[in-house]
Design a protein around this nucleic acid. Structure first.
Lengths: 131, 131
DNA sequence: CCGAATCCCTTGCGATACTG
DNA sequence: CAGTATCGCAAGGGATTCGG
């Protein structure tokens, strides 16, 4: 990976090539549709497995398990098991997870703000290419 | 998709369930490893196809083409073809693309800031699970 | 109720070869 | 130089079943 030109025009110019792999990992997490949804759900407070599955709607329990494990592994989500029958497991954001919400929501805000432009660009592009 | 509980505690509470699919599309773009790298490269100025391929390093020309097309379709990148031989094509960020850099870099900054915590969390998690 | 394990199909993506 | 086309593997992810 030669990304020597990557920083530059950045305000504080803090992006260096050596950090790119690590940054990419975080971006991959954010790019994961389900992970972001889970984080947003948990930003509203602690939730149980079934609650998440039901409220997200459309996710398989398999993917929910996998995503939660990944988020837990990265220290973004905390998993608490209550040794009762039937089992009860609660998921909550950690401080790290909450801090991630800030830039993620900034991105969400950008998306909402520029949705119209993007869709217009797509329509124009598609119109040009289908002739 | 029932995401009725998704907004809530948000500062300005501007996230609504109806907007989620659109937001997800943007997040998917950002999650795409190559797209973000391309955007960062172009934030340093206009570049040619081969320059991007060489400087990014590790991307196949197939993926580069596909990603650039996607970015162009979304109005983030502008493609300029010079009708000369040999062919010359330049890529540059649009205003929309440049505005996207802001929240993306914010995320990058977050990633850099918290890399150590994430790696520590992973190490701790892996240590606990492999016993 | 929470989650692990298996099956199986679809998709992503790299490698390679070919055009204008 | 800047793509397009085809192939083939490997990962992603849904459905289902079993276990604690």
């Amino acid at each position: 990976m030669s990304l020597s030109t990557l920083d530059v025009t950045t305000p504080q110019a803090i992006m260096h090539s050596a950090d790119c792999p690590k940054v990419s990992q975080v971006l991959a997490r954010v790019g994961d549709k389900w992970s972001v949804l889970i984080i947003m759900m948990l930003s509203n407070g602690t939730r149980r497995f079934s609650d998440l599955k039901r409220d997200i709607g459309g996710i398989s329990q398999r993917m929910l398990t996998i995503c939660l494990r990944g988020l837990e592994r990265d220290g973004l989500v905390e998993r608490t098991v209550y040794p009762v029958v039937p089992p009860k497991v609660e998921y909550a954001l950690t401080d790290l997870g909450r801090s991630l919400c800030v830039p993620v929501k900034a991105l969400g805000t950008w998306a909402l703000t520029h949705t119209a432009e993007i869709e217009a660009a797509r329509a124009a592009f598609d119109a040009k290419t289908e002739d």
